[in-house]
Amino acid sequence: MTAIVLYKRPQLVTKDDQSLSFYLLSKFIQDSPHVYTNQKCKDTLRVLFAHPEAECIVVCNEADQPVGLVNCSKFYLRLIGPMGMDSLYMEPVTKLMNRNPLIVEEGTHVQSIREELDRRQEHSLGEYIMMTKQGKLSGVLKVSDLLSL
């Protein structure tokens, strides 16, 4: 099963404001490991072991477009829970991913991203925003880093 997340691109501002905004924002964009929608939780666990420093894993479709996000801490807790490993190990990663992450195209003004976060009212400072370039994954941005700008 392939999960698809639809999102609207926020309005962009003038070229000068946009360039400065993205320059500041780009300092905080990090690489992130990723898996694909057709992979199982066991595959995601292997990626987590290969990247122990990662706080999140992006879930992409076959076109390398991000469609979901796995918070590593929550993922581990679900797997070690009462019915975790036995029941979830062979399940698709899409079962445990956040299906409504914030996905933002590079070049979007910082204020537009903040406004979208405010509309959602469900974010925490440890959450991540997925950044794309021409629709494909380019990295992740921690909400707390965005709010520090």
Rank of each mutant, 00 (worst) to 15 (best):
V104S: 01
V35A: 05
L102Y: 00
V110Y: 03
K27V: 11
N100Y: 11
P92T: 09
L96A: 08
V70M: 13
Q11R: 06
A3H: 15
E122S: 10
N38K: 13
Y23C: 03
T2A: 06
N98W: 04
G107S: 10
L141I: 09
N38A: 12
A63H: 05
D17V: 08
K136C: 11
H51Q: 05
V13D: 08
D86M: 12
P52A: 11
E115T: 12
G135S: 08
T132G: 05
V47M: 10
Q39C: 11
D16S: 06
N61Q: 05
Q11C: 02
Q30E: 15
V67Y: 02
T108N: 00
S148C: 08
I129Q: 09
R78C: 12
P33F: 11
P33K: 10
V59F: 07
C41M: 02
K15L: 10
V93A: 03
E62N: 11
L137Y: 00
T44D: 04
L77H: 15
Q111V: 13
A3S: 15
T37D: 08
K27S: 13
Q65S: 06
L102M: 10
S148E: 10
D16M: 05
Q30T: 15
S87N: 14
L20P: 00
L12E: 12
G84T: 05
S32I: 07
S32L: 07
S73C: 04
K142I: 00
R119N: 06
D64V: 00
L79I: 09
